[in-house]
Nucleic acid binder design. Sequence first.
DNA 1: CACTCCCGCCAATTA
DNA 2: TAATTGGCGGGAGTG
Length: 897
Amino acid sequence: ENIFDRPKMAPKTPIKNEPIDLSKQKGCTPERNPITPVKIIDRPQPDPWTPTANLKILVSAASPDMRDREKKKELFRPIENSEQSDTPDSLQYDIVDDNTVDEFEKQRPSRKQKSLGLLCQKFLARYPNYPLSTEKTTISLDEVASILGVERRRIYDIVNVLESLHLVSRVAKNQYCWHGRHNLCQTLKMLQDAGELQYGELMTSQHKEQDLDYKFAEQKKETIPDSQDRPLLDFSEPDCTSASANSRKDKSLRIMSQKFVMLFLVSKTKIVTLDIAAKILIEETQDTVDHSKFKTKVRRLYDIANVLTSLGLIKKVHVTEERGRKPAFKWIGPVEFPENTDELRRHSPTSDPLPETQRGACAHYQTSATGKQRFTRHTSFNSAQPCEATRRKVSSEPNRPHQERQAYIVNSDENHSKMINLAAVCRQKTEEDIGNKPCDTEMILNSAKDSNVTLPFSLLRVPGDSDFCVNPLPQAVFPVVQADVPNFSLPIGISSQASHPFTPVAFKTENGKPTLVPNQPFLCFPSSSLFMLCGGLQESNLSEPLPAAGDLGSRSAEAHAAVPPTVCQKRSSHKCSSPSAPVDDEEPAAKKQTLEHSDLPLSLVVPKKPSESPKAEYSPGSGCSAAVHLEMNRLDVASSTVPEVADKKSTKSLACQEQEKQSQKKDPDDPPAGNEHISKENANQPFQPQYLYVQPTAGLNSFNFLFSANQTSGAISLAANQLPSLSVPCVMVPSGALTSFPLICSPSFTSPLSPVPDGSSASATTNFSMSSLASTTPVFISTTAVVTPKVSPAPLVDPQPPAHAALHLSPVLTRSCSAVKLDSPVCRGHPVSLLKLQQPSSAPVTPKSIRPAHHEAFFKTPRSLGDPVAWKKNEGNQTRNASSVQRRLEISSTSPD
DNA sequence: CACTCCCGCCAATTA
DNA sequence: TAATTGGCGGGAGTG
């Protein structure tokens, strides 16, 4: 034993015991020595609960030394091992250690070994970066502390920082829930946004590089009014959880951590020196600059920096300034997305957030909401807690558990489970492939940018498959919709005009039919997997600033707008079935694609349009289309991009992509056009297609959907002619799949949420209503604004009953739809309308719909978002208030009524 | 000596 | 009131 022990010890470092170890080894007093006597003793007992605990106890009983050793071992463990129980590890250690043991011992473990950074690595090693959605990992502070051999206090330091980034959330007293990095990009994005608000101005104006920072910092102090900070704080940290508690002191570490991260995200150079950061963070601190205070701040920053370093987000560097060299940290985490998003947001609506997708819904929501968004975010983030707002939005259903809803919305954390997992996996892979940047999104974004496209929508995963599902109906048939979309194309202008919002109401499109407003974004959830899509996208923004805000929502909306024109088609196997759809289609090219394949959901993409695009050809007007194209391309291309995107979002993308691709490929049916388009798109993007589609195979679950922007309706309608009408941007179709499929909602999805379970085929239901659940019918959803206006006002209904979900189809749609029937429920989102083809079922669909306003609600904000600035300002005020959030929710919520 | 930052007291919050 | 959280700063380790 001794032998082993030594080695073990040596390497590691006993935490507290260090001295002891030495002594022992040395021969001094074996046991603990004088040096630091220790607490060790104290510690030992702590965790009985742990699996290993028993062992430990025994060990300790046997001899104190043993315990110490073990502790040490733990520390040493490789990260990998960390999770493993203590005992097992020992062996490893031993091996390793042997040689040097003595030496090490002599050396002492020393401080470094005890460092927070190292401890954090160990901590992180215990949990997966991208845990499956389903599994929730709870972290017991006591347990972890014991396992890692440190005092609890230290764990708090780590957890607080992780919590600020939403990697974990506190669920209960000694319990934290591990979320992993699924939402990291989102969180960072949020922080970036927040940071820009707070600090950005300063930065921008002045920035230069580091120096600027200083100034910047100073300025900030001045400039930044309280409000700003707080808001940031609020939203960022407090999140949901604490909201109530906000008042508390959340202060420090958490907030400081977020602010610190913000500085990096806002900084051009991505390098922040400690002193600057300390000054800035000092809260604004104030003025009083006590030296002591400064010192304390720096200490804390080191603590935070150690954790962030362990997370791989920053690294230590030295900046040489006039005065000399200063310690500084450089951001090595994903930056992009943030940037992209920001840019996108601000600049163009288009921007998209695919990346966000993963984050999912969250992002969307957030985006949508302007100022409020933040709130949302919070909420969303905290998976643990349901964000009420979110829920509301999401669900209409009151009943549902929060989680589910959240999931939808968010990414959920939990719900998604599978999907998520997949996504995660994909993501990871992607990342790897890519290079790793954490944010896939970035890539995506970039690509998008390049292309101009933005992603229009983002996908979200949906959590449970079940939940929303729409099932494809058999009927599903929907075959499709093909929409062609060309028609659609909405004029861009429109979109812009509409822009926003809500306006949804119909536009007319070329056809004259009204379309929906494109703007809306929509979401889809696939069944099994769900994805949500948001569309949006477009850049239309041009005109509008709206969305600027960034919110995704906005974007989405935009996108929609843009998109709308396009058609969507879905194919899916259904197509087969009924393929027919009318297709009239349009141009073929369009849009369709189908996919069969798998279940996977596809993601869709929405294209945004880029500007340029020739693609737009079709509809140029619609920028949308372009966007779409892009998306399409991407999708097609997908591979490349998609994946990335997917990552963010979740896997889905990837999957989707692939599927799509494949499917597309597969489907020859589809007119090649689709493919071509895609190709083209890639190439140029001539197309504009906007639609997305997704499909699943028939058999499978997959479902498909499309989105197009506009067309949808038409598409839907099958033949419809095109009606272009709908503006819906998207449509979903389930394939038959299965079951369930999720549904989508448009922006508003809020409502939808409901899950339907099942797989049954039922379809449609979107969830929301689920009631319908059963129905099978496919649903369509479009966003059209047109349709439903429901919400608009804010009412929130949160709960809506499922029934209504239905939604609203727009008349037009309806008509067109008529062909199809909707059955199911539709979502509520206003924007979205579902169509069912057949059965009316379930849900009562009423048209409640029509509420025009929805869109807004939906995203609430898009518009609002539009201006980032504005919202920023707003934020100040509102921000915190839930109210805002609520509002959003409300709005969004379908509430129909 | 300066930089890091561990350690743990003890206040604020919670349960 | 006990337990949990977590601010805070002394002061030690490191280079």
